[in-house]
Design a protein around this nucleic acid. Sequence first.
DNA 1: TTTCCACACGCAAACGTTTGCGTAAGGTTC
DNA 2: GAACCTTACGCAAACGTTTGCGTGTGGAAA
Lengths: 343, 343
Amino acid sequence: MKQKVTLKQIAKELDVSISTVSKALKDSVEISLDTRQKVKAFAKLYNYKPNNIALSLKNRKTKTIGVIIPEIVHHFFTTVIGGVEKVANEKGYNVIICSSNNSFDKEVINMEMLASGSADGFILSVAKETQLKKDYHHIEETMNQGMPVVLFDRIIDEIVCDKVIIDDAKGAQTATNHLLSIGCKKIAILTTVDYISVGKLRTNGYLRALRAYDIPEKEEYILKIEDIDNCESEIEEFLKDKDIDAIFAVNELFAVTAAKVLNGYGKKIPDDVAIIGFTDGILSKHFIPSLTTISQHGEDMGIRAAKLLIDKLEGDETMTEEYRTVIIDTNLIHRQSTKKNKE
Amino acid sequence: MKQKVTLKQIAKELDVSISTVSKALKDSVEISLDTRQKVKAFAKLYNYKPNNIALSLKNRKTKTIGVIIPEIVHHFFTTVIGGVEKVANEKGYNVIICSSNNSFDKEVINMEMLASGSADGFILSVAKETQLKKDYHHIEETMNQGMPVVLFDRIIDEIVCDKVIIDDAKGAQTATNHLLSIGCKKIAILTTVDYISVGKLRTNGYLRALRAYDIPEKEEYILKIEDIDNCESEIEEFLKDKDIDAIFAVNELFAVTAAKVLNGYGKKIPDDVAIIGFTDGILSKHFIPSLTTISQHGEDMGIRAAKLLIDKLEGDETMTEEYRTVIIDTNLIHRQSTKKNKE
DNA sequence: TTTCCACACGCAAACGTTTGCGTAAGGTTC
DNA sequence: GAACCTTACGCAAACGTTTGCGTGTGGAAA
């Protein structure tokens, strides 16, 4: 078992100094051609690779981006990560992914862990618990220590930093408008409780669209779901005997769950009830009927977030104080779940 | 902007030596109680956190597990990661996730990158391209350098190391048996090309089940798909006018695609054709009809893999030469897509 | 007063790099 | 033969830790 070979070992073997080896590998003119070749041949033979840890320590940077997301088993977040990886790899950065599991404590721990030497900056979507607690000290401390942070999707208005979001309200409005435009009048919304920033925004967009069409908002058309993973019974209850002709769901799961419940109640989609979702994930694409939805372009978000972060990481000090908020376009993806026959 | 505070700065501020600070923080009896308290108070005030990089360099270990998977936007792999994270966090390890994107080159690059100081060991599912190329030098080199590797799911028989797999053949056999047991006779299989290890194994299991029932295997019932992401046209072609009463699909996507195609052909599921899938993902759960499937227990795989790796990492030298292969149980999840009326 | 022993602390090496600067050996110039 | 310049290399510091060992100071014992 040959252990990792270091400069020191090469130096000893070749009977030169460590610095000579280091310089030779870098093709420094300080070193004679002869020695350079000898060293390089030897290094290649023993498959020498500089130790990243030592380099990080020396350079005071790790060339690593820390990504913290609320859930790892989640299609949207993984598409974002895909985008981050793309840019990061192009620019020679490594990516460390940690999941907070929607726990505030785990978010703090992960952040502190990565902040103490493992990453140069962060791309972060905050945990549900963090949004509830409104405790952002860990993020602020990280930024105070000079590490840039880019927030995405579930952002925090109070924190001043780069952000990448979609216009959730506008997307929701577009969705609702689409339902209105195909003739729906009694539109229900399945959304999350208000402390989830994106949920609240989407609710607002829904309300805005109704107002623009002069349709009064009805309390009974709005369901705010707390426990996302066990939404079925709530939705079942809510939809029972309800006189509606369309549903706007703020995520995929709510949309397909509603579809299933309606199926059970003998309603046809889209003829009896049209459904529109949010997030263009696997479910929307493959469900029958396929679901019209608002695409969030997760990969683009990741790309933009990574670019913002790397800009800040590599920019000079002057631009450090300039923060940007990038708003990614959403767009409506027409599918079967809103194709009314009367169309 | 207060920069990260180091031992050196604390030492200077308090006018003691670095080692005194270090020892004081560790509550060493060498240091007077008075000094200890002073140092600790100061450290707390300035939120001192030891620099992981420096620690890694000193200890020659990073307390980090490298996970390399073929795709990040993939439900099964993310569940495995979930399991890894669970164990890793419990045992004080960090997790770095990289995706090879099914590219051999990216797998090699990621591995070398992490191997040169960033991780102590690997949990790996190899890229499609790697399986095709049969070039495993990067894995072998990593192991030669003393870094343990645990392979999971898409493993490589030729490499001797810890492994975590499911019994793919047995799972496939169970699936096929189930179809047979509900009275199906003309069972098609949608599988991958043979160089994908798990695909081949599942195909074998299917054949074994048929043989056990004395049903001759028919070439025309077998579809080996190369391009997974564009399987629809192939499946459509394959299923056209085919006289079958059941389909075994080796993954979710094939299963739902087949279901959609059959829908288009006016066939009812499960009455005309029963369908069984592999992997218990989001699609299977939420599709209508919900899909009977073989659960792979991704999270368990992750948990076991992480345990194997950490055992090796923390075990003494003697056990280093002992390799285990853990086989995770699969189980059949009954859902609607195989509920024949005649049952 | 001398000797000895705790006590409380600092020194220095080590982990693996990089790099500015110092310097010995050899050659060139006058 | 002296002065100087190249060439080719080594030294040492630095990044932030940990830790075995050496040591100065003070007090107590003799």
